[in-house]
């Protein structure tokens, strides 16, 4: 399980794919949007953001987002 909760605000997404670029590079050492664990789909202004089952909430997608569409918060450790 990942260290973060990733929160999405799809209204803020610009479709820049910085999240997919960053995620794919972290996972594969290559910038390869289709290999990302996050996917952004923009159709006629309607945006959908989804995560694959492989997502470990590493948080780089949120680090790379400048639009407030993705943010990360640290998960509290269970006692």
């Amino acid at each position: 399980m990942g260290k973060y909760y990733i929160t999405t605000v799809i209204e803020n997404c610009s479709g820049c794919l910085r999240c997919q670029l960053g995620c794919s590079e972290a996972n594969t050492r290559k910038f390869k949007p289709i290999a990302a664990h996050i996917h952004v789909e923009m159709n006629d202004g309607d945006c959908a953001i989804s995560f694959t089952d492989d997502c470990i909430a590493y948080g780089i997608c949120a680090d790379n987002c400048f639009y407030g569409a993705l943010t990360k918060t640290v998960k509290e450790k269970s006692s």
Binding site: S14, G15, C16, L17, L21, M42, G45, C47, F66, Y67
Partner: peptide, 11 residues
């Protein structure tokens, strides 16, 4: 909606 080219932080 505001849009950005790939990788652009400004749009």
């Amino acid at each position: 909606r505001r849009l950005a080219c790939v990788s652009c932080p400004v749009g």
